[in-house]
Design a protein around this nucleic acid. Structure first.
Lengths: 341, 341
DNA sequence: TTGTATGCGTTATCAT
DNA sequence: ATGATAACGCATACAA
């Protein structure tokens, strides 16, 4: 039953050639009003739906964009994906998705699967990829866009923000408040250049202030509330105890906040927490939380626009940098006593 | 540069016919070990990637599953999608996604776009669809799976849970606590049969107890924190004021909780709140929140499995019902004084 | 076990 | 403005 009526069926019913029907789909203004209408009637009558495999084979384009993300199960990526898919759909493009859960092997196979399916362009997250994937990308010659990071080398088009600069911003803010003991709860750094850039930003900003970030004060945890809890517990056990904690995303930050409460640590009086990602809850349940808001939805929109440019043949070299903002809530509280154990 | 090497190129390099190369891909065990190896070497040497348009045209299958969801920007759907895509990828299927933001027109065009692209099967959310979509589905003859709802009529395969029963469960719980005045904060009911089933469940359970749910005590709001806030404010203004509020999802429930706090209403002493969806935050920041946990990840896994069965030609008639659970937190608090204004 | 030949549904070139 | 026809890359029935 599947995929019955074809171009030729419509052509027969409309009394024209299949070439004309094809044109009615792709260049309707080339046809005489009358025949166009006859064809369109036939299409409706038959419930004809074009077969894009045939179309792809003949036209060498699939009207499909591939997206390879770490996971859809983080708000930032699902929002990003949602926005992109809506924007692309408006231009007649469909989104084909692969996720790899931060596993380079899965990223490679996912990208390969998308390329096999003939995506007209490919969107990736981050700049880091395995040599095999790099080779696959250059061999395929498919237009590629890196997201959530900026490719300053200009090797590939990119839209994102400066993860490094963002955490420098946050660290300086905390330094200005008088903090001297820091902790970082990060996601796993393996195969996550964004997370690494964030940690590096902290390290650098602190270094400029003559403060060294010890290995023990950077803990890697899964991107979950539990990860945030565990991370904070580990940091709280250090001596001296950090008075400021930077978290890699909202789940980690909120988990850390919960654990602070469980441990009886006042935020931000005894400990300050900074989290990446936009978390509406923060303003209400966690007035002491400072956040670095990342523009996931904007990124999706801009990425879609850039992809369309690439597909139009434009050469997009310069990275498109989106602004991030540090949102400080409840900063009126007293600064923490630095160095208190 | 795109999509250079083809089957024939590999065949030439390996010194075989293209048919043999095709077989090496689809039925490797039909080939002599030696020739298979020669072919595979050639494939690697050339960096050959199959063109699935050609494959789809010839085989009439795309190894692609279409998913039409309301949005990826709600945790339940992104988690569902993520799980499904992972499970399907393990069986060599790719997921093609369309989202419609609760707009029937977009749902139709999305489904059409997916069918055009030749998806082997289609996954939809809910049972309600426009007549046009229904016709499209039957005309196309594509295997279809309804999710997040149970098709008791057996017209289509379905995996989900009983939204109606779930809210009956919640309402009875609140009745048992002594509540007599109820409010409901729902998402928009238009084109959302799950939301309607939830409200109906409440209405029915209350009706059994001789309580009528007035029109004013059911408010429709967008699925956001702000929606929850606005909804609760509206309900709190009613006289008599509801002592128990049921919310359509986690965002609405948390928004309602925030507003309770802003209004100085103690939860659950003065007002009880019940929210659909699994919300980890609840146990910490909102100990008075009772939740109906929905198994988004399980649904994704089961849906993927069912789709694979359908693709294998199995006839899946009976709806697959997943269990839901009512999680009561902080129920030790005193029951609210019923009917207090 | 492998090769030959044909067709899948559409687009695009070239006529008319 | 429209028609005839040759690709597009692969799978498969049939032959060998």
């Amino acid at each position: 039953m599947a995929q019955r009526t074809k171009l030729a069926d419509v052509a027969r019913l409309a009394g024209v050639s299949s070439a004309t029907v094809s044109r009615s789909l792709n260049y309707p203004n080339l046809l005489k009003k009358d025949t166009l209408k006859r064809i369109q009637d036939a299409i409706v009558r038959l419930g004809y739906v074009p077969n894009s495999a045939g179309r792809a084979l003949a036209s060498r384009r699939t009207q499909t964009v591939g997206l390879v993300v770490p996971t859809l199960d983080h708000a930032i990526f699902s929002r990003f994906t949602q926005t992109m898919q809506t924007a692309l759909a408006e231009s007649g493009y469909q989104l084909l998705i692969a996720s790899h859960e931060y596993n380079p092997t899965l990223e490679l196979s996912g990208a390969r699967a998308l390329i096999e399916r003939g995506v007209d362009a490919l969107v990736l997250v981050g700049l880091e990829r395995s040599p095999a994937l790099d080779e696959l990308l250059t061999q395929s010659g498919i237009p590629m866009l890196a997201t959530w990071a900026l490719d300053r080398s200009g090797k590939s088009a990119s839209v994102g923000f400066d993860n490094h600069a963002a955490s420098v911003l946050a660290a300086r803010h905390l330094l200005a408040l008088g903090h001297r003991e820091f902790g970082v709860i990060s996601g796993f750094l393996h195969h996550n250049d964004r997370a690494r850039a964030r940690v590096e930003g902290v390290r650098e900003a602190l270094g400029d202030a003559g403060i060294k970030l010890s290995a023990a004060s950077v803990v890697e945890q899964p991107f979950t509330y539990a990860g945030g809890r565990d991370g904070l517990r580990a940091l709280a056990a250090l001596s001296p105890r950090p008075t400021a904690v930077l978290c890699g995303n909202d789940l980690l930050a909120l988990g850390a906040l919960m654990e602070c409460q469980s441990l009886g640590l006042a935020v931000p009086q005894e400990i300050s927490v900074v989290g990446f990602d936009n978390q509406e809850l923060a303003s209400h349940f966690a007035p002491g939380l400072t956040t670095i808001n990342v523009p996931a939805a904007d990124l999706g929109r801009v990425a879609a626009g850039t992809i369309l440019q690439l597909l139009a043949g434009d050469v997009v070299q310069a990275p498109v940098e989106l602004p991030i903002e540090l949102v400080v809530r409840g900063s009126t509280g007293p600064p923490p006593t630095p160095g208190r154990p």
